[in-house]
């Protein structure tokens, strides 16, 4: 992820080009930046009906990507939910996404964790592996290495619960493939800023 954490051009306070002749005139205009970046955004919203549809509709309606999306209430007293969305796009698109989210009426705040980092990202998966004999033993051994927990077992199957980065989950699921992988359920990414600061 770290190579993707490129500082975006701020829009309200950031002035990309110097004023008064230092910058070459027109160098920054109308040139499409084609670098695709991956950003994780944390969106605090009022927990009211339709709010998720509003956010998803914004992405589909404007042709933005959603790589992962999670949502749950985080403050019952204040009726607040947090949506964590992982998206990709050019720097201009990423800036648009942030501004478009920000102007939705029930949105309290939008934090681009990739820009405002350092941040933590975690995902959870339930992984069902159905096998017997050596494969079953090997699955259990690998699960132990990955610190996955067995949350359900039968004579011919396990369900592992595993938490970690997306890459770690991908690696574990990849290893289970030849060992009888039968079902995967993932939560998508939840994320938070490191340190004492809040969003």
């Amino acid at each position: 992820m770290s190579d993707l954490k490129r500082r975006n051009l701020g829009i309200v306070s950031g002035v990309p080009a110097a004023i008064g002749g230092a910058g070459q005139i027109g160098e920054s205009t109308s040139v499409k930046d084609i670098t695709i970046e991956r950003h994780t955004m944390s969106v605090l919203v009022d927990n009211e009906s339709g709010v998720l549809a509003r956010v998803i509709g914004l992405f589909s309606g404007r042709g933005y990507n959603i790589e992962s999306l999670t949502v749950a209430e985080v403050d019952a007293a204040q009726h607040l939910s947090r949506i964590t969305v992982v998206t990709t796009g050019t720097p201009m698109i990423i800036e648009q996404i942030k501004n478009q989210l920000q102007r939705l009426v029930p949105v309290h705040s939008v934090t681009d964790l990739t820009v405002e980092g350092p941040s933590l990202e975690r995902e959870m998966a339930l992984v069902k592996v159905a096998s017997t004999g050596d494969k079953r033993v090997e699955a259990l051994r690998i699960a132990d290495i990955f610190r996955a927990r067995v949350v359900d077992a039968t004579i011919e199957s396990f369900v592992f619960e595993m938490t970690g980065s997306t890459e770690k989950l991908n690696a574990f699921i990849g290893l289970m493939q030849p060992l009888g992988l039968s079902d995967v359920s993932r939560t998508g990414i939840v994320a938070m800023k490191r340190g004492s600061g809040t969003e």
Binding site: L9, I11, P16, T29, S30, V31, M92, N99, Q100, Q102
Partner: peptide
Amino acid sequence: PSSINKSVRVDL
């Protein structure tokens, strides 16, 4: 703010 830098990159 979402009108800014939507299609044309601006300097100020």
